[in-house]
Lab assay of single mutants.
Amino acid sequence: MDVFMKGLSKAKEGVVAAAEKTKQGVAEAAGKTKEGVLYVGSKTKEGVVHGVATVAEKTKEQVTNVGGAVVTGVTAVAQKTVEGAGSIAAATGFVKKDQLGKNEEGAPQEGILEDMPVDPDNEAYEMPSEEGYQDYEPEA
């Protein structure tokens, strides 16, 4: 019985440690998101679009440190934060509304985080759909 109880105690310690790591990862992701939003706020009209992409990228980098179902929630929060940063930029006159959601080359930025393969159960990952990809044929 002692062996059984000791095993359960060790398992509990492992769960607590994993929860603490997840909590730490979420806190880091939130900190990076805040950094990115402050970065966007300090940019001029020309830099705002690039700044919004930076927020998304920093958040995406930190999301990889967070495991399990938390990833889905962090990704949703990050996307809403990026959308909010863009709205703030438009409201303050840093950028025109028609410039939001495009990178410096004018290509749409939507789907940055949505296409990231995420499995809350950590069982399997699927690649994003290939609808947006084109076949590449090298020139002879």
Rank of each mutant, 00 (worst) to 15 (best):
V70S: 01
E123Y: 05
G67R: 02
V95H: 12
T22M: 14
G7E: 05
P117C: 10
E110Y: 13
V40M: 08
A19T: 04
Q99N: 07
V52D: 00
E46D: 05
E57Y: 02
G84M: 10
Y125R: 03
S42A: 14
A124H: 14
G41M: 12
K80E: 03
V48G: 01
P117K: 05
E137F: 05
V70R: 01
S87I: 04
A30D: 00
L113H: 05
G47C: 14
E83A: 12
K97M: 01
L113P: 03
E104P: 14
D115M: 14
E20L: 01
T72Q: 02
E20P: 00
T81A: 12
T59K: 01
V40D: 00
M5W: 02
S129R: 07
E131K: 06
V55W: 11
V63S: 02
G36S: 14
E130L: 04
T92K: 09
K34F: 11
P117N: 13
E131G: 02
L100V: 06
M5I: 00
A107Q: 13
A11P: 00
V3F: 15
Q79G: 06
V82M: 03
G106L: 12
L38H: 07
V16R: 11
Y39V: 06
E130G: 08
A76W: 02
G7V: 14
A69P: 04
G106W: 12
F4A: 02
P138N: 13
V77L: 09
E28P: 01
K96P: 15
G106V: 12
N103S: 07
K23P: 01
V55L: 08
K60V: 09
A56V: 14
H50K: 05
A89T: 09
E57V: 10
Q79A: 06
A56K: 10
L100E: 10
E61A: 13
T22L: 09
G86W: 05
E130Y: 13
E83M: 11
V3R: 15
E126H: 10
T33Y: 04
E110T: 08
T75L: 15
S9R: 14
G7P: 03
E57D: 05
M127R: 12
H50S: 10
A76F: 02
K45D: 00
K34W: 01
P108W: 05
T33N: 02
N103V: 10
T75H: 01
G41Y: 10
E130K: 06
Q134I: 06
K80M: 10
P128M: 03
D119F: 08
V49D: 01
I88W: 04
G93L: 04
A107E: 12
K97D: 14
V49I: 14
V3S: 04
V63Y: 11
A124C: 10
V26C: 05
V37D: 00
V48E: 00
E83P: 07
G25C: 15
V55S: 01
L38W: 12
T44V: 05
K60A: 13
F94W: 11
E57M: 13
K96Q: 11
A107M: 05
M1Y: 00
A18H: 03
K60T: 05
V15K: 00
A30T: 07
Q99K: 06
G132V: 01
A124N: 08
E105K: 09
A27I: 12
F4I: 02
E139F: 10
L113W: 03
E83W: 03
T72H: 00
G73Q: 12
M1L: 03
G51H: 01
K6L: 05
V48L: 08
T72P: 00
M1W: 00
N122A: 10
P128F: 13
I112Q: 15
P128Q: 05
A30H: 00
Q99T: 10
G25A: 14
S42W: 15
D2P: 01
V40P: 00
E126Q: 11
E114R: 08
S87C: 05
L38Y: 08
G106S: 10
Y125F: 13
P128C: 12
G84D: 07
K43H: 04
K32P: 01
L38Q: 03
T22Q: 00
I112N: 11
V66D: 01
K58T: 10
K80C: 08
K58Q: 05
G93T: 01
L100C: 09
K21A: 10
V70D: 04
E137S: 06
V16M: 12
T64H: 05
L113D: 12
E13R: 01
Y133E: 15
P138S: 02
A78M: 14
E110M: 15
V66K: 05
G73R: 15
N122P: 10
E57R: 06
D135I: 14
V74A: 12
P138Y: 08
Q79R: 01
P108C: 04
D115V: 12
A56P: 04
H50Q: 01
K32L: 15
G73N: 10
A91S: 04
K102P: 10
D98F: 03
T33R: 01
F94K: 00
T81Y: 04
G101T: 08
E20D: 06
T33V: 15
N122G: 10
D135V: 04
G41T: 14
K10V: 11
Y133T: 11
T92R: 01
A29W: 09
E28Y: 09
Y136I: 01
V66E: 01
A91F: 15
G51R: 05
E13H: 08
K102T: 07
V26N: 00
D98S: 14
V118L: 12
A124M: 04
G47N: 12
K96W: 14
Q134F: 03
T75V: 14
V66H: 04
A91M: 14
V66R: 01
V3I: 07
K21Q: 09
G106P: 06
F4C: 04
Y39S: 10
V37T: 00
D2R: 07
V66Y: 15
E110C: 11
G36P: 04
A124I: 04
A91W: 13
